[in-house]
């Protein structure tokens, strides 16, 4: 096993463990790492080297996906700091957040019957995206001040919002294809 495969994703990309990340630099490093490790670079190498290359390239892909997404990145940082996640058990939310979620879901459900479904959906998606951006800002602050309990709660809330975004994207696809 390579030492690089046991490094954490930040170490692999030679970046400090931090929520703030420069996306352009992340993408640049990703390409440089894949240029070095991709199995296509080892088409003539020994079987062992080809196997190492495949595993390393898969690891780099996984790391890139995790670091690129603010939600996954935050979750990963918390895990590095020893915070455990158990999505089945971690289900307590404040009632204000739950009410908001119920309202958003109702709004999404009503879109389908609206004669101007697509434009209404568009407005709703902008609302969801704004909430996600706000939540990510708060998450950055919580992580910055090492408030891990608060950060973990926010990761859970963000997961809710992301799920909602995926559902609205699916509905948008469905509506667009029906045109």
């Amino acid at each position: 096993m390579t030492a690089a495969s046991t490094q954490n994703y930040f170490e692999l990309f030679d970046l400090p463990v931090a929520f703030e990340i420069d996306n352009a630099s992340l993408a640049e490093r990703y390409r440089d790492l894949q240029r070095a490790a991709h199995p296509d670079r080892y088409a003539n190498a020994t079987e062992r080297e080809r196997r190492e290359a495949m595993q390393m390239a898969a690891n780099i892909n996984e790391a890139f996906q995790t670091l690129k997404s603010p939600l996954q990145r935050a979750r990963y940082i918390l895990q590095l700091k020893g915070v455990d996640f158990d999505d089945q058990k971690d289900t307590s939310f404040d009632s204000e957040f739950l009410m908001e979620q119920i309202e958003l879901r109702e709004a999404l459900a009503e879109v389908r019957d609206d004669p101007n479904a697509l434009s209404r959906l568009n407005t709703l998606m902008q609302d969801i995206n704004a909430r996600i951006t706000d939540m990510q800002d708060d998450l950055a602050k919580a992580l910055g001040s090492e408030d891990l309990t608060e950060a973990k709660a926010m990761v859970h809330k963000l997961q809710f919002l992301h799920k909602l975004r995926v559902e609205s994207e699916n509905l948008e696809a469905e509506l667009a294809d029906a045109l």
């Binding site: 030492a3 690089a4 692999l12 490093r29 440089d32 070095a36 196997r51 190492e52």
Partner: peptide, 26 residues
């Protein structure tokens, strides 16, 4: 047999390749 005996060598080479890949950035 040769594949077997070069396993560790392959891993070390991969590590050094990965290090070199990002050296330019620093």
């Amino acid at each position: 047999h040769l594949n077997e005996i070069t396993t560790e060598f392959a891993a070390r080479r991969m590590d050094s390749t990965i290090k070199r890949a990002l050296a330019g950035h620093r």
